[in-house]
Amino acid sequence: MNPLTTLERRAMASITTASGAMLIVAADQRNGMKAVMGSPDGPGAISKAELADAKGDLVRHLANHAPAVLLDPEVALPALVDEDVLARGTALVVGMDASGFETVDGLRHTQFVPGVTPRTVRDLGGDVAKMLWYVRPDRQGADSRVAEEMRDLVKACEAEGLLLIVELLTYRLEDETPEEYAEAFPRLVADGAALAVACGAKVLKLAYPGSAEACDAVTAAADGVPWAVLSAGVDHATFVEQVRTAVAHGASGAMAGRALWKDSLAMTSAEREQLLTGRALPRLRELATAVDGAPA
């Protein structure tokens, strides 16, 4: 277990429900958010200003009802703080990762948003930072580039008094069949968690590993470090059941993006408000019940 500092403990409390479960609305997507906005001319026709407006509506009508929201420093910030869109009672998690990845020797590597550091996260009003890494723990060990990057950022955030959420995504290799990857997936999630914890991670954001038994394995691998389930684009009903299972087997909450809002981001602000309040907000409330471990 990697214990929290006093400052990190306070930050952790800001992203949890009254019962202590993590619940964060993920709205740091850029290309993924454009893809569900429904422009008749396709995602490429959506401007940065239009995307920023959609993110603003998402915060106003959905995320402000959650303990915390995850936003990006390329489109959403600092405007949504400076313009008082973000409610004072909703903590801000700042995503440090840029969209996309580069591939080196068959392995994926994410990159930082240019110029974004732990100090930048503070300057943007952030309470917590988040960084995404793609991992293949069967190919990447403690001496790998990804492990070195994790260790360096954990240390830099701790020096800044900033809690860091480490998000991990696994992926299929070019020489791996879909069946081989599906078989390896639960083990990859657990082994990825173990690698991140060995590198000093104090909070994890992980894919649902597939079953109650796999969740037990992840919890054991995390060795006392809290982990939250990401929605990975599944539908809301599926995600809620995944969260209930994960929480019952050691997970500490959820970070939900597309499962909440992917069918609620119409092109006009008026339509978005109606969909976010009438469709996405009830989903958030149901998810809050799930992370708190209440029965269905």
Score class of each variant (00 low, 15 high):
M1H: 09
A13R: 13
A13S: 12
T16E: 15
T16G: 05
A18W: 05
L23R: 01
A26D: 01
A27W: 00
Q29N: 13
N31P: 04
V36M: 15
G38F: 02
S39V: 02
P40G: 10
S47E: 14
L51C: 03
L51W: 03
A52P: 01
A52M: 10
D53T: 13
V59L: 08
V59T: 06
R60W: 03
L62D: 05
A63R: 04
N64V: 10
P67C: 08
V69I: 11
L70C: 07
P73W: 04
P73L: 04
P73D: 15
E74K: 11
A76T: 03
P78T: 09
P78F: 05
A79M: 11
L80T: 05
D82E: 15
E83V: 04
D84L: 08
A87S: 13
G89V: 00
G89I: 04
V94Q: 11
M96Q: 11
S99D: 15
T103V: 15
G106Y: 06
G106A: 06
V113A: 02
V116I: 15
V116F: 08
T117E: 14
R119H: 11
V121M: 14
V121C: 11
R122E: 09
R122S: 09
L124V: 09
L124F: 03
G125W: 03
G126N: 02
A129I: 02
M131A: 13
L132W: 06
W133M: 06
Y134V: 05
V135S: 06
V135K: 05
R136C: 01
D138W: 04
R139A: 14
R139M: 14
Q140P: 06
A142M: 12
D143W: 03
D143H: 09
V146K: 05
E148W: 03
E148Q: 14
M150V: 07
L153F: 10
V154N: 12
K155Y: 07
A156K: 11
C157V: 08
L162R: 12
V166C: 15
E167M: 07
T170V: 11
D175C: 06
T177M: 04
E180I: 07
E180G: 13
A190Y: 00
G192H: 01
G192L: 05
A194E: 12
A194W: 00
L195W: 00
A196Y: 02
A198L: 10
G200M: 01
A201P: 02
K205A: 13
Y208V: 08
Y208W: 11
S211R: 02
A212F: 02
D216F: 01
T219M: 00
T219Q: 00
A220Y: 00
A221V: 09
V225K: 00
P226T: 02
P226A: 08
A228R: 01
A228K: 00
D235N: 15
H236L: 12
V240F: 01
T245I: 12
A246Y: 00
A246T: 00
A248Y: 03
A248V: 10
H249Q: 07
G250M: 02
S252R: 07
S252Y: 01
G257C: 07
L260N: 15
K262N: 14
S264A: 14
A270P: 09
E271I: 03
E271Q: 14
R272L: 05
E273H: 10
E273P: 04
Q274R: 15
L275P: 01
L276Q: 12
T277G: 05
G278R: 12
R279I: 11
L287S: 08
A288N: 04
T289W: 08
T289E: 15
D292R: 06
D292Q: 09
G293C: 13
P295Q: 09
A296T: 10
